[in-house]
């Protein structure tokens, strides 16, 4: 029963809260949808903390895509050996993880030390940074010091298939029952964070302005919104 809860009910609940929470907030709370910038108050520390952390997140995100979402068979088909994959994963993952952790520590110190930043940080702001720090910390630890050889435990044969099974609506929770505890912790905390996204400023990353380079530099809008728009 415990396994069903942790590897079926809990992840689904978190994802559902995330999706519906985001939709609700997007529809009815647009005015709260923005990046939580505090650059106005302090920019010397931010200059290092924010880019380090964010580039780390982006690399880590790509890494997770490669390890969890893309099935092992894909690499086999490309002829990438297990050994080669793990070499890349350990070095790339460690780098991304360290960037995130160092960045987050800088951001956290900055949040505590600079009065204007601290005074205007909400509970959710502290929560986001600390939760990310814990999750990224565990993830980095696993990658750097986990000492899990592919023969001993390969997350690509357990966590990956389980994760993908969630999305085809036939969760294979048995896969997760016997993985090392530290992997369980990282995974569960991650899903917990997904569930809390709608209640924090983390919503900002759903608004990456990818269309910016393709749009016209000058934007005109009509106040009257004529029926037959004159262009």
């Amino acid at each position: 029963m415990g396994d069903v809860f942790w590897w079926v009910i809990f992840p689904y609940a978190c994802l559902i809260i995330m999706v519906f929470g985001l939709l609700y907030r997007f529809a009815f709370r647009q005015l709260t949808w923005a990046a939580p910038s505090t650059e106005f108050f302090e920019k010397k520390w931010l200059r290092f903390g924010s880019p380090l952390f964010h580039w780390g997140v982006i690399f880590a995100f790509i890494g997770h895509l490669m390890g969890i979402v893309v099935p092992m068979g894909f690499y086999d088909a490309l002829g990438i050996s297990n050994h080669l994959y793990h070499l890349g994963a350990v070095y790339g993952g460690s780098l991304a993880g360290l960037m995130m952790v160092v960045g987050l520590i800088i951001l956290l110190i900055r949040k505590i030390v600079f009065n204007p930043v601290r005074v205007h940080a909400t509970f959710a702001d502290f929560y986001s940074v600390i939760a990310l720090l814990i999750i990224a910390g565990i993830g980095t630890y696993i990658t750097m010091f986990g000492n899990f050889t592919p023969e001993e435990f390969d997350y690509r044969s357990a966590i990956g298939p389980w994760f993908r099974s969630l999305f085809v609506l036939s969760p294979q929770y048995q896969l997760m029952t016997s993985i090392p505890f530290i992997f369980k912790l990282h995974t569960l905390l991650g899903f917990g964070l997904f569930g809390s996204i709608p209640f924090t400023r983390l919503v900002h990353f759903y608004s990456i302005p990818v269309a910016y380079p393709t749009r016209a530099p000058q934007q005109y809008r009509s106040r009257a919104q004529y029926k037959n728009k004159s262009s």
């Binding site: 302005p209 269309a211 004159s230």
Partner: peptide, 17 residues
């Protein structure tokens, strides 16, 4: 306006009227 052109989200705009 360079403010309009600088906005990645296209949130700034110049009114037609």
């Amino acid at each position: 306006p360079s403010c309009v052109a600088s906005c990645p989200s296209g949130a700034l705009y110049k009114r037609d009227e």
